[in-house]
Design a protein around this nucleic acid. Sequence first.
DNA 1: TCTTGACTTGGACGAAGTCCATCGTAGGAT
DNA 2: ATCCTACGATGGACTTCGTCCAAGTCAAGA
Lengths: 136, 136
Amino acid sequence: MSDLLQRLRGRGWRLTSQRRVVAEVLDGDHVHLTADEVHLRAAERLPEISRATVYNTLGELVTLGEVVEVSTVGRAKRYDPNARRPHQHLVCSGCGAVRDVHPVGDALGDLPEAERFGFTVGSVEITYRGLCPACS
Amino acid sequence: MSDLLQRLRGRGWRLTSQRRVVAEVLDGDHVHLTADEVHLRAAERLPEISRATVYNTLGELVTLGEVVEVSTVGRAKRYDPNARRPHQHLVCSGCGAVRDVHPVGDALGDLPEAERFGFTVGSVEITYRGLCPACS
DNA sequence: TCTTGACTTGGACGAAGTCCATCGTAGGAT
DNA sequence: ATCCTACGATGGACTTCGTCCAAGTCAAGA
């Protein structure tokens, strides 16, 4: 993640303490925090950081393709920093916990031409749903 | 969809005019309305219907498995009445248009046991993203 | 037709997220 | 090393989406 900061700087990002802290909070595997959780953890290191800044920074990271928003049904968005390595998600219907998973197969290829309706299909997002060991 | 009302009645649903109107609004293929859109259209036929009733009814239809919530990133939930026929979605990144699609293959089976982390995996939701003919 | 409990209503409430005017500061210019 | 200034941070108001609740209404069985 530390080279993330380098990369962003190369793209003209001004490197503020707030952005550094948000990037640090997002470091690691199987990290799928909500914006509020990111704010909470960032505030442990930088107590005066505002919610708006966290939202702004997360939005910029998403635009730059460094972080992916994980779609959730009826819950707050979660942010996944592991955007460079393609993967899918397994979500607990009970508690909302998220794991990264790597299915085999070729989901993109599984969509027949006749089912594309003239769309230029670029990506596919797969969400497995179930109950985690604690919730079942 | 008209037999939907019969089925629901068989399950002990009290058949009110509000519920009838919501079910009628949801009739058809490629219907993916937000709760507010459902409310708007229902109100054209039954002006006094309340938002709370629309939310309640949609929630009940989801619980009964007659309607599926389509997860969206950052926008209001959409409700898909075509729940009996399993299908996935193709979403235009430009205008947000949604089409129902039927990929081949077995996405559930494509998730290896080692990638399930002890979860009881029950369903899989696939979203293809791309540009529709009008947007590309 | 009567009765009753399930259903509806509208407004208050809450969570998640955006907007905006103002202030602060990173980092290039001098 | 210091100055400048445009980019970024702040926090509070606001919006959107959705839930909750007490009181009133009505579908459908007796």
